[in-house]
Simulated scan of single mutants.
Amino acid sequence: MNTSASPDKSRLLSVVVVSADSGDSLRDCVRHVLGCTPRLELILIDNASADGVPQAIAREHAGDPRFRVLYNGANLGFGPAVNRAVAQAAGDMLLVLNPDCMLDDGSLQRLLEVCTDTPQVGLVGAVVCDAAGTPDPASYRRDPLLRRALTWLFGRRGEGVNIEGAMPDHVVDAEVVSGALMVLPREVFDHVGGFDEDYFLHCEDLDLCHRVRDAGWRVLLAGDVHVLHGKGGSSRHRPVFVSYHKHRGMWRWFRKFDPSARNPLTAAIVWLGIWAHFLLKVPGQWMGKSRNKETGKRREE
């Protein structure tokens, strides 16, 4: 490969947002994107939401030629939905954006500048933050190799998955950036084959970053770009479902990329560890879901 992906700033940006009962934050996400000034189209692809929000948004923005909604008849998962939206996108640049991310114009322009002007750029992420402005460690981390996970788990000295210290305040090379917001040239996405559709939800961003790097492009964190990320509007309604697919994704990533997976005994231990961890989390997730329902009922009253 290995020419630099340097799209011209005047090219069209295709923004892809996947929804699945994402709630009212989706409305704000769409409004923020359509309030930005770069030349763009916004494709909202819906994974069989039952909340009626995508349809309401479609009516609200019916007069805006930059916006359209694609409806899937079933929940296909995150990566498969993105791939289907990209197949219908017209842009030379892509922005994959979570429905609970609130992107402002200055941040978008800066991300496009980094993606346009940096040699060998393959994918650019941002620092995603909660409402208090606290950065999510997932914005800038290393591949979750087994040896790194064990270093963190047992408190050993050495290289873990998370990168210690403050978030960078400038553009840096990264192994992994948050899948909540990813900007990349269309040619890069097409070259690596888009998202691996054998992931349903979670870890497909780790996979994409790895394959972009393997293909010879750079994964970058724009540390000077901070974006509000609401963290999981749809996942709160079905925590066990989401957790199951997260653990399933962890197992797939391990088998694809971790050298430790070549050892059958090690792989068996990892498999048991992943699914034991999932089972241990289920009771707390069910209790949390029940509390959320009760809180919702009291608010309605």
Rank of each mutant, 00 (worst) to 15 (best):
N2E: 14
S6L: 15
S6F: 11
K9P: 04
K9M: 09
R11G: 08
R11T: 14
L13F: 10
G23D: 02
L26D: 02
R31M: 05
V33S: 03
L34A: 07
L34I: 09
T37D: 14
E41M: 12
I43E: 12
P54F: 00
Q55N: 02
A58Y: 00
A62Q: 01
G63F: 04
R68V: 06
L70Y: 13
G73N: 12
N83V: 08
N83E: 10
A87V: 09
L95R: 03
M102Y: 06
D105Y: 03
G106W: 00
G106V: 00
V121K: 02
A126M: 07
C129P: 04
A132M: 03
A132G: 06
G133P: 13
D143R: 08
L146K: 10
A149D: 01
A149I: 04
A149P: 01
L150A: 15
L150R: 12
L150M: 15
E159D: 15
G165V: 12
V172H: 09
A174S: 11
A174Y: 05
V176D: 02
S178G: 02
G179S: 09
A180Y: 08
A180G: 12
P185N: 07
P185V: 05
E187S: 03
H191M: 03
V192T: 01
G194I: 06
G194M: 09
Y199W: 05
H202K: 10
H210A: 14
H210G: 08
G216Y: 11
L220M: 05
A222F: 01
G223R: 07
G230N: 05
S234W: 06
S235Q: 12
R236D: 14
R236L: 14
H237C: 05
R238W: 07
V242Q: 10
Y244F: 13
G249Y: 01
G249E: 03
W251I: 03
R255I: 06
K256C: 14
P259I: 09
P264A: 05
A268P: 11
G273F: 05
G273W: 06
I274W: 03
W275H: 15
H277G: 07
Q285Y: 04
M287L: 15
N292T: 15
K293W: 14
E294N: 11
E294F: 14
E301C: 02
